[in-house]
Design a protein around this nucleic acid. Structure first.
Lengths: 331, 331
DNA sequence: TTGTAGGCGTTATCAG
DNA sequence: CTGATAACGCCTACAA
């Protein structure tokens, strides 16, 4: 395995200095067409292309963006990742996907991101306590951070998210008009769960309608299995007359699972015996088998915004964008 | 914004040479405990941690692995990405997720991977023509490549995949025993689609049962929408008596969509009027609303194998691992 | 065990 | 427009 050709080698082959070679590969550098052609020809022959690693070391910019993800159970993540990678690549930025888990936590990942000098760090649907930043060696030169698709509890870290207040207001209005009066809410993972704010606003808007005490069903995680379990345990512990009549879930995965359990294990009709509402509007929610009423986050606007902030085309600041309420048959 | 501390600065603070600092951060280097402690204390005070970029430049190893993906419509990708990132991170390797699309094609991505000196490139469910490699500046020093979850048509590029022959044999045996005699097969994207080999083996095994002419329904892409469209157009062009009685789909997404269309738009019972089989066994296939019979790829074994090949713990070679046939109600 | 040279391949900056 | 010098921050190899 031969080594990669270097600018120096190309320079010798072309009979110029290596700086001239660099210039030939630098858009807008001052160099004569003659020299450039000579260089390009030699480069072609030697299969030369600039070493981006060396460039990064010299320029202090890696053109890489880290994306932290800790919840792979939600299929909604995938289309967002698709958009995100595409837009970033269009700006010449590559995406480093980092799996935050028990063995590789935020601190680990942050230190790594620091050492690798990523141009930015995106916390996609995940977050950590503010203290995490304080006592660590993440001070100067740490890449700018952004929170995507959830609120940021961290001072100085802007969040790009869906406007949950607006969304829940619209949802509760709709449900109230439909005649539902005994609302329930299914939450996912307990950790920092308030960060999503959905439960909070949901309860708030019901209160304004004069309805207190939203029943909470707590799933362990944001997975179908956990959602099913939470629904099952609630339904088997309650009698039909005392039950909630509408269940809003923190995301579609939980909602679809709850629907399945209600229909197939308890013989409940949806929405007649129990209405169900989700959040995210994943592709399957529109399937005839579910027809789940859901709320679609303005993913494209969110991705556009965060990329613009990373490239500096736009000021970095917390913004809440409005999505779209998708009414279907489940509520 | 102050700059990051360097080994040199730490050395001055600790009163040693910078090479001693390096050693303090190199596991297994020969250094006295006294020096090490001195260095670590100074490093702590200065918030020093080694610059991985500089290290990569000097060692010619980035500890980064590129993963090419061109189909984000299949939710199956997500759990695999989760496993892959986790195992790679356990080996100290980070994942660079590269979105292959019209604007950023394989050639683009390969050149980039070369320039960035990734330790390896994984083609996850995607592939390109062999010629792509030939006429490009990707010769020496190009990172080792692997194909994950599909066959490799590229000479010298090992593929780590599910054993499609075994899988289809088992599936066709089962369907034949169940009494189905008019098989159909739904394919996804046309491009290089034979690479999956599923259709080929499916037709083959039916032939061995004495049944020729598997009907092909061609979806444009591997998306629910395209799958629904393909099913719709076939079903509306055929009469119930002449129709296939079992439809195998190249993946679960297509299968779920076909099921939806059959049931809700054509009033067909599944499996009585039309049996459906998928591939991948995504989480929703097990939901009561579908109960889709499917085939589960041995994802964990595949990921383990590819990571072992990348780290060099295992010889790089094409392997086909056997998965698990999951029989449910849809066929 | 510790220190010294030299090099990895590029970019910034300045002299000619 | 071109060449040269000095970083960038680390690592390998060798000498003390």
């Amino acid at each position: 395995m031969r080594k990669r050709a270097t600018a120096k080698e190309v320079a010798e082959a072309a009979g110029v200095s290596k700086w001239t070679v660099i210039r030939a590969f630098t858009p807008g550098a001052s160099i004569t067409d003659a020299s450039r052609q000579k260089v390009l020809k030699a480069a072609e022959a030697l299969n030369y292309s600039p070493n981006l690693l060396a460039r990064s070391l010299a320029t202090n910019t890696t053109h890489q963006v880290a994306v932290f993800v800790d919840d792979f159970a939600n299929p909604h993540k995938l289309p967002v990742l698709e958009m995100l990678t595409e837009r970033l690549q269009a700006e010449g930025l590559l995406t480093v996907l980092i799996n935050i888990n028990r063995h590789f936590d935020h601190v680990h990942a942050l230190i790594n991101a620091d050492q690798r000098q990523f141009d930015a760090v995106i916390l996609f649907g995940t977050a950590f306590r503010e203290e995490t930043l304080g006592d660590r060696r993440l001070g100067p030169g740490f890449p700018p951070m952004f929170v995507l698709a959830r609120d940021s509890q961290i001072h100085g870290v802007p969040a790009i998210a869906c406007n949950a207040e607006l969304a829940l207001s619209e949802i509760v209005d709709y449900l109230f008009d439909k005649g539902y009066r005994r609302p329930g809410f299914m939450t996912g993972a307990r950790t920092l769960s308030t960060a999503l704010g959905r439960r909070h606003h949901y309860a708030n808007f019901w209160r304004r309608k004069g309805i207190e005490g939203v029943i909470e069903l707590a799933a362990e995680k944001y997975s179908a299995r956990a959602g099913a379990e939470a629904a099952r345990s609630y339904l088997s512990a309650t009698s039909p007359v005392s039950r909630i009549d509408v269940l809003m879930c923190e995301n579609d995965i939980l909602a679809l699972a709850a629907m399945d359990v209600a229909r197939s294990e308890f013989g409940l009709g949806v929405p007649d015996d129990l209405a169900v509402v989700g959040f995210d509007n994943i592709e399957l929610s529109g399937a005839p088998a579910y027809e789940l009423t859901s709320y679609e986050q303005p993913t494209d606007k969110m991705v556009d915004a965060i990329v613009a902030m990373i490239t500096g085309e736009r000021a970095s600041e917390t913004i809440a964008l409005s999505g779209r309420f998708v009414r279907r048959l489940s509520a």
